[in-house]
Design a protein around this nucleic acid. Structure first.
Lengths: 145, 145
DNA sequence: AGCAATGGTTGGCCTATGCAACCATGGGAG
DNA sequence: CTCCCATGGTTGCATAGGCCAACCATTGCT
């Protein structure tokens, strides 16, 4: 598990994690898939953005985003506002309900992670977090996601 | 990114990774999905096992495994042998072609990971690998996948 | 003006999965 | 030795999530 094989281990464990994550997220929050959750999260962080921005950020097809957003709007979690600067575009915003649901799911996810990482030493948590950031940052946005 | 927020960062980065992984894997190896790849890998490691074992190990529905295995068999990567001890069961084995494809994809995945991790210090790679193993090991097989 | 580029939507299609129903074999309990 | 439930697998049905291409409306450069 060490030495020259660290790369293999990382590869294998990231694969395991990837395989499990989506289903686990679905079981945890039937009301909000992993994708919907990240889209809502991005809207909250950005304070509203266009569908195209979401598609670019997550390297999803614009049709996929369009349908996801439509579903979120049907659920009343997202609203569309006209973009004053561009008549073609719509700016997406969280609704109050959207903020509530996002907060609830975030809290529940956070609790799961906290439980899972409960007995990790703080130094290890910090390093792990750094490694993940570094790993995901490669080689920059809009490529190789 | 540090201190009290390490758990949040880990949560966020794992989520990012999970969202990206499947599509990235698909782009890397059109011939072998992430799931097929892990199933083949398990067959190689275990030296052959039953579909039910695969389903249990990966917490997939047996119907899903059944179809995946059927596809792998159609592709000639896996063969079924009768289980001498149980007429209901079949023992799955890699074929020569299966071993070849698995080796090729493994190598290509490894190359991608190597590139991505190329300039990481060895100490960081080892720690990262350890953290991932520890993270995924929780709380043991057959639960919370 | 004219036309290519951009933001979005929709239709068609595919993969991956889960659940439920179903079949055949196994393995005790009587 | 039966009967019945458990187990290994397959298949029908439904859902989610994606991609690509075609299409519409608006933008904005030439």
């Amino acid at each position: 598990m060490h030495g020259a094989n660290a790369v293999e281990t990382i590869q294998r464990e990231m694969t395991v994690f990837a395989r499990r994550a989506r289903a686990a997220a679905g079981r945890m929050h039937p009301e909000l898939s992993l994708v919907s959750y990240t889209l809502l999260g991005h809207l909250e962080e950005s304070g509203g953005c266009r569908a195209t921005d979401l598609a670019a950020h997550y390297a999803l097809d614009k049709s996929t985003v369009s349908r996801q957003v439509a579903a979120l709007e049907r659920s009343g979690l997202v609203e569309r506002r006209p973009d004053a600067a561009d008549q073609r575009a719509q700016v997406l915003h969280l609704t109050q309900a959207g903020r509530r649901v996002l907060a609830r799911v975030t809290e529940s996810r956070r609790a799961a992670f906290r439980e899972r990482l409960a007995h990790w030493p703080a130094a290890d948590l910090n390093r792990f977090a750094d490694y993940l950031v570094r790993y995901n940052a490669w080689p920059g946005p809009a490529r190789r996601d």
